[in-house]
């Protein structure tokens, strides 16, 4: 119901900084969440890495590297969507009112939150890639370090877009019960149909869906930078991912501006 968004006063950078810091501190303090997200990643690495024998795939295809990089990209999806939805917590516990009534614009509030979650995401991606290396899935190339450095800005950009989805959902839903619904109908399809864990080849009937899933391009870009395996052209990846990120940030900003807290 808030119609006054102080649009004209622009972005307040100290406020962005403190809101980003708040997200990162909250992430750091929530040990249960950190542990469970790593446990999940390790589970995926072990189960998929060792259940499918090398014979399942064409010769020369390094599935373990494929899997480890896919799970790195997967972290962006999970952390981003559920991080963005975390704003519902603030709505429920009232802190959103304190933020809304502060003399800063809604853009400030949104950018602070988005950046905070994006930083959390990057930290998690880095840790999971380290795990992948430790498991021996990604090999021990000296240039892997450089590739991981290039991954950082990609993960940041992709996660901004994904956080946008989370924010849109978070501003709309009213209770935690909807989490399961979001998990089943948005997160899981995006995850399974983007080739993060199992490759979707172009003779599969799922291929068209794979092709129209924007997250597939994030995963593909991620993977082609990290291990050099790609399905699409790298420029197409960059193009789709940028459009996706920018579009969702804007949509997120719009729904954040319209958000009703009273």
């Amino acid at each position: 119901m808030s119609d006054l968004n102080l649009k004209h006063i622009g972005i307040n950078y100290p406020a962005v900084w403190i809101l980003t810091k708040r997200e990162v501190i909250a992430f750091w303090r929530d040990k249960a969440r950190i542990i469970s997200s790593f446990a999940q990643a390790i589970l995926f690495l072990l189960v998929f890495g060792y259940s499918l024998g090398q014979n399942t795939f064409p010769p020369g295809f390094n599935y373990k590297a494929y899997l480890a990089s896919g799970i790195g990209a997967l972290t962006i999806l999970f952390t981003g969507i559920f991080g963005g939805m975390g704003l519902m917590r603030d709505k429920m516990f009232g802190f959103m009112k304190e933020l809304i009534v502060a003399p800063v614009s809604r853009q400030t509030l949104m950018i602070g939150r988005t950046l905070g979650i994006a930083i959390q995401t990057v930290i998690q991606v880095l840790i999971i890639l380290t795990l992948g290396i430790a498991f021996g899935f990604l090999g021990y190339n000296p240039d892997l370090f450089l590739r991981i450095l290039i991954i950082i800005p990609i993960a940041l950009a992709a996660s901004m877009g994904i956080v946008g989805i989370g924010l849109i959902i978070g501003t709309k839903i009213r209770n935690f019960q909807s989490f399961g619904l979001i998990q089943t109908f948005i997160v899981m399809p995006m995850f399974w149909l983007s080739g993060t864990i199992l490759p979707i080849t172009n003779d599969s009937i799922l291929y068209p869906i794979y092709q129209y899933n924007p997250f597939s391009y994030c995963v593909d870009l991620f993977r082609s930078v990290l291990i050099g395996i790609n399905n699409f052209d790298i420029w197409l990846d960059i193009l789709v991912m940028s459009a996706f990120a920018i579009g969702l940030i804007l949509l997120g900003a719009i729904s954040f501006n319209k958000m009703d807290v009273s």
């Binding site: 708040r22 501190i25 909250a26 303090r29 929530d30 603030d90 516990f93 009232g94 802190f95 959103m96 009112k97 304190e98």
Partner: peptide
């Protein structure tokens, strides 16, 4: 000061 609480419970008072 709002009718309903509007604090961040996961932060310390000083934060």
């Amino acid at each position: 000061v709002f009718q309903e609480p509007s604090l961040d419970g996961d932060m310390k008072g000083i934060e």
